[in-house]
Simulated assay, not measured.
Amino acid sequence: MDALVSTEWLAGELGASDLRVVDATYFLPSDGKDAAAAYEAAHIPGAVFMDLAELADTSTDLPMMLPTPEKFASRMQSLGLGDGSRVVLYDSSPYRTSARAWFMLRTFGAHDVAILDGGFAKWQAEGRETASGKEQLRHRHFTVWADSKGVRTLDQMKANLDTGAEQVLDARSAARFSGEEPDPRPATHAGHIPGSKNLPVGELFKPDGSWKRGDALRATFEGAGIDLAKPLVTTCGSGITASVLAFGAHLLGNEAAVYDGSWSEWGADRSTPKAMGAA
Rank of each mutant, 00 (worst) to 15 (best):
K134P: 05
T143Y: 06
S6Y: 14
G84Y: 04
A175N: 06
S148P: 03
D170V: 07
K71W: 09
A41Y: 14
P231K: 09
E166N: 05
A41T: 15
P63N: 09
S271Y: 06
L14K: 00
A246Q: 05
T7R: 08
A171E: 05
H141Y: 07
S98F: 02
A131R: 12
G225S: 09
R138L: 13
F142M: 04
P273R: 14
G164S: 15
G46Q: 03
T220Y: 06
A35E: 02
L232A: 13
W102K: 06
S78Y: 00
A275N: 07
N160I: 11
T235A: 02
M157Y: 01
F205L: 13
M50N: 03
S6P: 13
H141F: 09
R270M: 07
G133D: 14
T68D: 14
D61I: 05
L251W: 01
F27Y: 10
D269F: 00
S271A: 15
R270W: 02
A125H: 11
H141S: 15
T97V: 06
M104F: 05
A11T: 12
W145L: 02
F27I: 12
T58E: 14
A278I: 13
A121Q: 08
A190K: 04
E222I: 07
D162H: 13
D2S: 09
E135P: 15
G109L: 07
A257V: 11
A35I: 01
R218L: 14
V244H: 00
A229T: 11
W102I: 04
L66F: 00
G209W: 04
A275T: 12
K149G: 14
S59N: 09
D227Q: 14
S17Y: 03
S210H: 10
A257D: 01
A165W: 11
T272N: 04
R20Q: 12
E222W: 12
I115D: 03
I240N: 00
T272G: 06
G118W: 02
V151T: 05
K149P: 06
A256G: 08
F103T: 08
A229Q: 09
A159Q: 15
F49C: 13
V5T: 09
D31G: 10
Q77F: 09
S264P: 08
H139E: 15
L228G: 05
R128I: 03
D117F: 07
Q167G: 03
A268M: 10
A114V: 08
K206F: 15
A146R: 15
V258I: 11
L55K: 01
G32I: 05
P69G: 12
H139N: 11
G80C: 07
D208Y: 15
H111I: 03
G179V: 02
H192P: 00
S59K: 06
H111P: 08
D18E: 10
A114R: 15
G109M: 04
S78I: 01
A16S: 13
H192K: 10
A257F: 04
L81M: 11
R86Q: 13
G133T: 10
G248K: 01
M1V: 08
T153I: 03
S78V: 05
V168P: 00
D23P: 12
E203N: 09
P67C: 04
